[in-house]
Design a protein around this nucleic acid. Structure first.
Lengths: 225, 225
DNA sequence: TTTTTTCTCATTCTTTTGGCGGAGGCCCGC
DNA sequence: GCGGGCCTCCGCCAAAAGAATGAGAAAAAA
């Protein structure tokens, strides 16, 4: 069903086909330059967001995908999931400029085999790609550190207590801590405690993301308010 | 940017293009019948909810939109706001079965030029559409009464610039200022300026509420993220 | 060509948020 | 009776967010 073009790689017969996904064309160009120095690698396509990445993957059938995580239209993590679901044989290396705890875990969980920072040296990047093509895990040391911390936390959004759910509900309607405190007739400090617990349990870094979570799971109706 | 199909109206050259938005296909059919009796009017499209309405508006570029207020997915008032923001030249007539105080005001504030009940007579409806196309206000007497009570609320969200909209879009996906800055390749200070402007223009006190607004008007899809 | 808008960045200051640790009271199940 | 979870609150502290204002540059509109 998924027809991949049978490209004849210009150099060598076994070059690793790489797809670059990043919303900044500058970055794409930069990566292309990096990778072109290695005859074992062949950049077969580029994409500016997750959606394009899926299309490009269908068309070019790469061995490895370099995927930025912060992108418009379709976020990198979502793209990784979709990509892996559709093409289990394609390995994905997540590539970001900043190291974010939740992103690391999210990317790995979504199916990435590697996680590198954009300031990675050219040769390290090349090695990582080759490792990925061989199905070997390749993490930047920092990313690995973040990961182990999470690994032993078997994860899965923990259950919220009744009170926490209530706080989340108000939070997701745009209430400030003070307003929530007023509404629930408790102290603002208490609210902060609850909010902190909610953020930690949901594993999100900010109240806005907690609000988005609440909306996603239907805790609140965004059109009401 | 927004290309509208250059349709050649079957009858007459200056027929008023009307878009019907209602979640009940029966109602849509009924309205279509009503309006087809008048050669000056041409129904160019239908939509079942706010989101479809936005798409349909982009595609068909109507002169007047008949908008039901009670709809799933995207509420009518939110749709009016989004529609008016995107196409200031399109006039919207709110159409409901029941008269509700807050809905009237909300609809007008959102940018509707008219407010009619669904039991309106065919000829009155036609007149209202023509009036709306000419930029004239047309309210049902009852609606007018409710409105005057509320009249002096000089609100109305100001228009966001392209950049501000972009910032809002990211903000509504839970991005921090720093992340937005990284994504747009600008300084964090600049992002803060934009965010401040957005909050001020939307008249909301926090980024979370701005995010909720963005979701309400369909700027972002909460299920993606 | 002016004028206006937009985008950019900066500084300063206040408020809000969020993390971390501790603590007392309460109720429930073992 | 005794842990354990839950709710409540406290303080301290660092980071983030937000308001207010100014200002240069580029682009668009007049």
């Amino acid at each position: 069903m998924l027809e991949c073009e049978r490209i004849s790689v210009s150099e060598g017969d076994m070059a690793i086909k790489v797809l670059i996904v990043d919303d900044h064309s500058v970055v794409r160009q930069g990566l292309r330059m990096f990778l072109s120095l290695d005859p074992d690698l062949a950049v077969v396509g580029e994409a500016a967001n997750g959606k394009e990445a899926l299309q490009a993957a269908r068309k070019h059938c790469p061995d490895v995908v370099l995927m930025d995580l912060l992108m418009p239209v379709m976020d990198g993590i979502a793209a990784i999931e979709a990509l892996r679901r559709e093409h289990p044989k394609i390995e994905v290396i997540a590539l970001t400029s900043v190291l974010e705890d939740d992103k690391v875990v999210g990317a790995i969980r979504a199916g990435a085999i590697g996680y590198l920072l954009k300031d990675t040296q050219a040769d390290e990047l090349n090695r990582a790609i080759k490792a990925a093509a061989a199905g070997q895990v390749q993490l930047s040391p920092q990313a690995a550190a973040r990961l182990v911390r999470e690994v032993r936390a078997p994860e899965g959004p923990e259950k919220l207590t009744d009170r926490e759910t209530e706080v989340l509900r108000l939070l997701a309607r745009g209430y400030s801590n003070r307003e929530i405190a007023g509404e629930l007739v408790i102290g603002e400090k208490t609210v902060k405690t609850h909010v902190s617990n909610v953020l930690s349990k949901l594993n999100v870094p900010s109240r806005t993301q907690a609000a988005l979570y609440a909306i996603r799971i239907g805790l609140v109706d965004p059109s009401q308010s």
